[in-house]
Amino acid sequence: MNRLFFIFVFLSILLQNFSKIYILLRFEMNQDYIEKNLCIKKDEPDNCCKGKCYLNKQLEEDEEKQKPQTSDNLKEKEDIQYCESVLTTLLGTFELTEIVSEYILTASLGIGISVFRPPKV
């Protein structure tokens, strides 16, 4: 059981970081091509970048892709869900139904001032 749990946790961690590991591996394997063709300093004689600018760009893009699932967005989603659940508890659930009747259609949409009169003593 412990072994299974360990494998599950290990795989979860691995999968979470898989895209980054994959990007790093791909960079390592194709670095010579990237350095000569895609690096912003490719034409400089002493290229100290060696294609790392491309790697950083790829990692940033990956971070961007993963953003909707993390940090601020996730917190915002949690806040909305919390408010919804509080309102549901307080007010109960109700359905919004469209009522179609002649009375409502012909009713005045303005405020009936005549209604707001002080009562006769």
């Binding site: 591996l25 791909r26 394997m29 194709n30 010579d32």
Partner: peptide
């Protein structure tokens, strides 16, 4: 497939 000594220019890796 991974390159270990130089590389093939006919493909990218892995």
């Amino acid at each position: 497939g991974l390159p270990i000594v130089r590389r093939s220019y006919a493909r990218f890796y892995p």
